[in-house]
Design a protein around this nucleic acid. Structure first.
Lengths: 103, 103
DNA sequence: CGGCATCCTTACAGATACTG
DNA sequence: CAGTATCTGTAAGGATGCCG
């Protein structure tokens, strides 16, 4: 019961799922890349959501020693376990949309 | 991709999952019962979230012809399909909590 | 009993500009 | 490039009171 809330807390915010999907899809992904992948997100929000995902140990942030600096984001092992849930949510979302919007 | 967002939209708000869990757990549940089940929710919020759940055809609202009136809420067939997701979320939430808070 | 109306406070999030 | 800082509007949500 509380555990469901824990899970939702880790995924809340408008962009987290899209961000995870972007990173997951490419394996590794840079800040600006994600900014472009996720339609509508601002750098401010992206920064904030990435930070929260990192705190929750769903993604890993790596600073590369280049000039100018490059930052790579990738899913952690723990982050990867989300895939099953995302898939289920996606499946249900499709059914749900058909149900509500009509076929 | 959008479908995940559709699913999240249907489940957003602070209380929806708890409300669904309450109804689901008992089969049928009345307004005040849910108000007591879900710790911290106000009648204003409960009313609002129930309405949204009803619009999304996840719950069914039935007014009984008593004095004073009684209202019963129950999950629709469509609402019941959420159980799989809620279970998965719950499982993941438990793992996640262990991971973050530490065992 | 089961809400709705109102008021009010805070959290969320966009736009823009700036920094190492 | 990868963010931070600030400023601002909106919306979520709590408290309370009223009504059929």
């Amino acid at each position: 019961m509380r555990s469901v809330q824990d899970a939702m807390d880790a995924l809340n915010g408008k962009w987290k799922i899209a961000i995870i999907s972007s990173i997951c899809c490419y394996g590794k992904r840079r800040f600006t890349d994600i900014l472009n992948d996720v339609e509508g997100v601002s750098n401010r929000m992206l920064s904030k959501e990435l930070k929260e995902l990192e705190i929750n140990q769903l993604i890993k942030r790596t600073v590369l020693n280049t000039q100018p600096i490059t930052v790579e984001y990738e899913l952690t092992e723990h982050g990867n376990t989300l895939q099953a849930i995302i898939t289920e949510l996606s499946d249900w979302g499709i059914v749900h949309r058909k149900k509500i919007v009509g076929k």
